[in-house]
Amino acid sequence: MQEFVPPADNTQDDTTTPRPSDTTPSADAPFGTRTDFSQLTTRVAAIRQELGKVIVGQHDLLEMLLTAILADGHVLLEGVPGVAKTLTAKLLARTLAVPFSRLQFTPDLMPSDVLGTSVFRPTTADFEFRPGPIFASVVLIDEINRAPAKTQSALFEVMEERHTTQDGTTYPMPEPFVVLATQNPVEQEGTYRLPEAQLDRFLFKLNVGYPTLEEEVAILQGHHAGFGGTPLEVVNQVLSAEDIAALRRQVRQQRVEPKLLEYIARIVGQTRAHKGLYLGASPRASLALLNGAKALAALRGRDFVTPDDVQFLAPAVLRHRILLTPEREMEGLTADEIIKQIVQQIEVPR
């Protein structure tokens, strides 16, 4: 019983072909990872299996979402209506045994509706802070671009610094804290463009497109046969908060060859020098690319980062952090095409 999730367009080449370093070492091979990724491999396989009960295909999209969770980052899912952005996020959150909350952003939403507010208690004659729905480990913000800038700005502190300040008191977010947001790129009525400062706080922006013919047929078959319950009921919890914390510790210990750091810095730096870009990526983008590459390498069973990891993640990390000049936009160029040009101009360190 499967539910449709369309492909993400963040791949640059054939990612289904395993890389030599991703494969399990043969018996006579002298090399292997020095970090024990068995726990990670087992848990990720279990998550894939659970999501596979509902979702058709979508290995890359799931890989990117898991990468973001391991890299301690937030994800913005962008796609036209009806491509199961929200369902994917809900199902992924379902596999994590952590507090989950869902926010539907609307034009009349206020910052206090998100963060919480202090209410007066007559019995104690004092104000008491009532936490908003943002206080959860996985927060799904649906249609994030339907809230005005005032409400968007309420997310700045909480997304970056993992705490919020109310009446001079700082309230930390639970660990882990992941924001999965969705938005529709086509509809303009009643929507607000996200501020650059907020876009920069998302680790990845994943574009979700339409499914292939075969995938759509599989979706129809799944719906026709029924799921044996609602999609959310058939998916079981796999990872606890402690598991996620342990896996993140492993990711932080990944090895990165010094020339790869320079490679990342050169790619991000080139966005600031490119003539077709009005706004380049910030150093936060470099950090996002580094942390994402470390998590992706761990997901692929390696304890070190390769240039393939960096190239694979570059579009997802950079596409929402750059602004094209009006001339390039009028020529029909996209952010992904500019990023591809930039990556082609930087020599791979080896």
Partner: peptide
């Protein structure tokens, strides 16, 4: 070549 690549990546990028 896949074998050579694997060796190179573990030694050079992985600092084996």
């Amino acid at each position: 070549f896949a074998d050579l690549t694997r060796q190179f990546e573990y030694v050079w990028y992985g600092e084996q």
